[in-house]
């Protein structure tokens, strides 16, 4: 496995203004994520986990500092450039799946491929492969409302990997699932990491989920801390 840094955050600060008040989420945050890593980010509510995820996913930009992905700075990209960058490099998995309710599983998985130049037949082929990967080839024509939470999350995983991105961002991917289903989802993520080389960052509250990751970091008040410090 490569040990190159896929992500590098350097002296990143993030502040929000709420009325007259300025809220600082991060101050001078530094972080590296190696290619092929499976990193779990844990921390209490308000610790900055989601903000960090947004920065890594290019849906938000830092107030200060640099974010580099695969050698390319992304903190200074325009909104349009970031959208293209996300389409090319990132797969997103959300806590509540966020599938389009009016599209069947196959059409949901196909969404990221609409941003490519693939023909309809190529897209169909790719969708088939992705659904097979998550074990849902027989559910391709099912609507989200006809599927269980676990199945919907697997469709969401298929959607995240269908365009073969290097990097997967998971925001509480098992937060809405029972233990057994959650473990199945986490095993799928493990498979994607180990067999397909996907770099994964997963935000979770759940220590059992974090165990599936290769590394776990803890955030508290915008800073990385040791796990024991969170208990204090």
């Amino acid at each position: 496995m490569s040990s190159q840094n896929l992500f590098e955050l350097s002296q990143v600060a993030k502040r929000f203004t709420k009325g007259k008040e300025t809220i600082s989420i991060f101050h001078d945050l530094n972080m590296q994520i190696k290619e092929g890593d499976f990193l779990a980010i844990m921390g209490p509510s308000g610790s900055g986990k989601t903000t960090l995820l947004n920065l890594l996913g290019g849906v938000d930009q830092p107030t200060e500092g640099q974010i580099t992905f695969d050698g390319q700075r992304i903190d200074n990209l325009s909104e349009g450039q970031l959208a293209k960058w996300r389409a090319n490099n990132i797969g997103f998995i959300f806590q509540f799946y966020n599938l389009m309710p009016m599209l069947n599983a196959a059409r949901n998985v196909e969404l990221p491929l609409l941003l490519t130049n693939m023909s309809r037949s190529e897209r169909k082929q790719q969708v088939k492969v992705a659904l097979e990967l998550v074990g849902l080839s027989d559910r391709a024509s099912h609507m989200p409302s006809e599927m269980s939470g676990g199945q919907q999350q697997r469709v969401a995983i298929a959607r995240a990997v269908v365009s073969d991105p290097k990097f997967l961002l998971c925001d509480e991917p098992t937060g809405d699932l029972d233990r057994q289903t959650a473990d199945e989802i986490l095993q799928t993520l493990q498979l994607l990491n180990e067999k397909f080389g996907k770099t994964i960052v997963m935000v979770t509250h759940d220590p059992s989920a974090a165990k599936f990751a290769k590394h776990t970091v803890h955030l508290n008040k915008g800073e990385f801390v040791k796990a024991e410090e969170l208990l204090v």
Binding site: V59, A83, R86, A87, F92, N98, L115, R159
Partner: peptide, 15 residues
């Protein structure tokens, strides 16, 4: 609203 946000997250440009 949430679906549009998802599309944007996936890389669909605002325009």
């Amino acid at each position: 609203t949430a679906e549009i946000a998802v599309l944007k997250t996936l890389g669909f440009e605002s325009m």
